[in-house]
Design a protein around this nucleic acid. Structure first.
Lengths: 156, 156
DNA sequence: CGATTTCCCATGTTATCCCATGTAAACCCA
DNA sequence: TGGGTTTACATGGGATAACATGGGAAATCG
């Protein structure tokens, strides 16, 4: 999949998780999803952070296709690979007002309270509890800054 | 068979096996099956785990075609696979309320009690006894997590 | 004729749809 | 460019529909 083939998720808009466990996916992100021929949004618990990874059908298809060609259907290797992508993911429907209803397990895993932050990551975006994300945001900023400095030093 | 041709089975919904040996196939899965032109659901005892493998016509058809393309006199692993798939599978009818009646042999093989878990695996899904699946779920999650960590480390 | 299976309806629960409203952004025209 | 207007968006909440499940009655089978 070439870089040009998709619109990237960018920025870090904030949103609200209401009493009915709904969040409104930012309109900007919804446009990207519909451009991927995705009715809803695929979502799963991130493996390494307390957040939810969200992506469209393009990403799901690309990963699934690669995995399907690599592992025959009825093998244990297939099962482990399929689990992390497919079993852990849910295809959540987006309603006409742009909202999805989050399963309780997702809310618990990411520790979501009322305020959530959407983090654009190119071909996917993440949903974080806003308070939990604040320090992570600073970490990532520092890491990116350090890398930029190193790159600059190496070039001189 | 292209990935585009079907929606993947995802997520891990739970269900109930009632006193009449019936389980309600999640509506989401039924939609995927009907999209595959499958009235019922093909089911067999999984070869490697105490669970039931379920799939629609797409998988059956793919195996049928794979088998047909081979010289029938030439024995191979694929012939054995296709044979076991075709001969060990049952086409269970789904009634109007979305339920199937499981044969006693299936219930015994998977050790099903009242609570069952459906495990979405893309082209197929599995039915597990919820208690038996819990540790397997953790194993698979840990394996996926280890892989994600290795990938992250290799990239830096 | 007894046991099992299939069909059908009832019911509580949950998710989905739909409309209302406040707010912020975009737009337009002077 | 400023100020007013319009549009799009995010959010709350009630009404509606879908779903999973239990259980009874009819049909089927041995």
């Amino acid at each position: 999949m070439g870089v040009q083939d998709y619109l990237p998720f960018t920025a870090m808009p904030v949103g609200t998780l209401d009493k009915k466990a709904r969040v409104c996916i930012p309109a900007q992100y919804r446009q990207i999803l519909t451009a991927q021929n995705t009715r809803g949004v695929y979502m799963r618990e991130a493996l390494l952070t307390p957040s939810l990874e969200c992506f469209g059908a393009s990403v799901m298809q690309a990963f699934h296709e690669a995995q399907a060609q690599q592992d025959p259907l009825f093998t244990s290797v297939h099962d482990v690979d399929a689990f992390s992508l497919l079993s852990m993911s849910q295809d959540l429907a987006i309603d006409e007002t742009g909202r999805v209803r989050l399963p309780e397990s997702f809310i618990a895993y990411a520790g979501l309270s009322e305020h959530v932050t959407f983090v654009g990551m190119g071909r996917k975006f993440e949903i974080w509890d806003s308070e939990k994300f604040a320090p992570v945001r600073e970490e990532r900023r520092a890491a990116a800054q350090a890398r930029a400095r190193a790159q600059l030093a190496g070039r001189s």
